[in-house]
Amino acid sequence: MKEDIILAGVGGQGILSIAAVIGSAALEIGMYMKQSEVHGMSQRGGDVMSNLRIADHEIFSDLIPCGKADLIISVEPMEALRHLPMLSHDGWLITNSTPFKNTLDYPDVDKIMATLEKIPNHIVIDADKIAKDLGSTMSANMVILGAACPFLDNVCLDIENGIRNIFGRKGEKVIKSNMDALKAGREYTTALLKKQTIKI
């Protein structure tokens, strides 16, 4: 049993919080985990990614082999595509649809969406809008994590517990807004899969 996850986004978008929540949930049930992250120059608005590996057996490599990731979880649509070579043939790509445009030559968003649509297994969710509607723009990353939750069930992770562990110190209000965001994301994916009668 293993789950290899590529987390992608732009420096400052909160992918390390996603990693921390999943990681904490994995540790809680005694799973092995490795998580490699990017520090330094790219954190200044450049593309960032994290390799997150969870398994019920010893994990050797800190990096996921190319073409073997089970999931790409991205908080930015173009960044999701950047890591496509990492995704396995039956892997799933879950991404935010809200672009983060901090470059002069950011591509046409329609083209990005059209490319995402061609990927066999994908969930595209407007996490920024959902987070805003919930009154908590800061928790778009937890909406994305929520949208990925159905795919994490096979490693039996209690993500809610992970949120409590990671955000516990910040008080009940912060926990609740993150929980709400997570729930909204999960519901989105569950409904979508049901509509398309896809079983995962």
Binding site: Q43, G45, G46, D47, M78, L81, R82, L84, P85, T103
Partner: peptide, 20 residues
């Protein structure tokens, strides 16, 4: 043997670090 992997789609552009 390594799995056949997808290429990075052409639409993707570089995102170098930027001043905040």
């Amino acid at each position: 043997p390594v799995p056949q992997i997808a290429n990075i789609p052409e639409v993707v552009t570089n995102r170098p670090p930027a001043l905040c």
